[in-house]
Amino acid sequence: MSSHDVMPEMSLYQPVRVEDAIGIANQFADRGWLVGGGQDTYGWLKDRAKSADALIDLKGIESMRGITETADGIEIGALVTLTEIANNPLIKERYALLSQAAVKVASPQIRNVGTIAGNVSQDVRCWYYRRGLNCYRAGGNLCYADTPEGMNREHAIFNASRCVAVTPSDTGPALVALEAQMVIDSASGQRVVSAEDFFVGPNVDITHTTVLAPGDILTAVRIPAKWANAQFFFEKVADRNAWDFALVSLSAAMRVNNGVIEESRIVAGAVQATPRRLTSVEQAVRGKARDEATANSVGNLASRDANPLNYNHFKMPLMDNLVKRALRGQA
């Protein structure tokens, strides 16, 4: 085993139309690699932990850029950078949850090139997996993190199924909270999948984190107007305040009328392989005031069914605390 850090030789395709990109992606199937900002690409390839025959660079596809207002909300091109999302006036005004999440991703340098599509499609950050070990997620037959001695501080407390990695995305939970729709183009046409269904856990597909299959291209993200100007809460707790992945994050969208929570979508990040909707909390707070009393009333509802590993019990109180903060309406 040796350390590699040089890009391997591979074909480079730079299509300028989605249909061309789909054609190339189909041609190479699972040996093709779609790249946008490249923040979850070059590491894999340079490390030789994963390989591909062809790199399909999507950055030349203009139709996948831009943030546009639609009849029912907004549409964000897949290639829109996280910095653009963080600074976009429309998003900041109406869907501040997403801009708040985007600005917490990694570092300014990464946000400047990293795209929304890349952020939601990125692979898990389990250090064993990223090392290139042949674990379950890599198609192997064991997990190195979920063992009596595994170093699993950052791993899942819910819904682990052999693999215990968590979703590293900050914007993913926010999009689930906003009931975003993911627009996927492929040779068989376009399909639209809810953000909630976009992410898949290891129980369903242990080697993928999303429904995207070879030949699929996530071309846009649509956010419906339903949650425009709702009350939002986002907080990401990570070891470091920049250039880090969440230990736990919480995204919440709440429709509050006269101080009462009429409807809410509360989603935790980094506690399982997919963004975790806290439906029990959502139901418990429906019709209640957004205040300290309601925050206290949910207690440890969020973490109730958690199954922590050796080193990640802290995620349970941390998750409960973030839920309280969201419901309290203030830090």
């Binding site: 037959n141 064991l142 979920d146 063992t147 009596p148 001695e149 682990a160 052999r162």
Partner: peptide
């Protein structure tokens, strides 16, 4: 016995060849 279940947690794998 090598996966988590309601009755036990997943153990370490000492010999990956045997598991294979």
């Amino acid at each position: 016995l090598h996966i988590d279940s309601p009755w036990w947690d997943r153990p370490s794998v000492d010999n990956e060849a045997t598991l294979g």
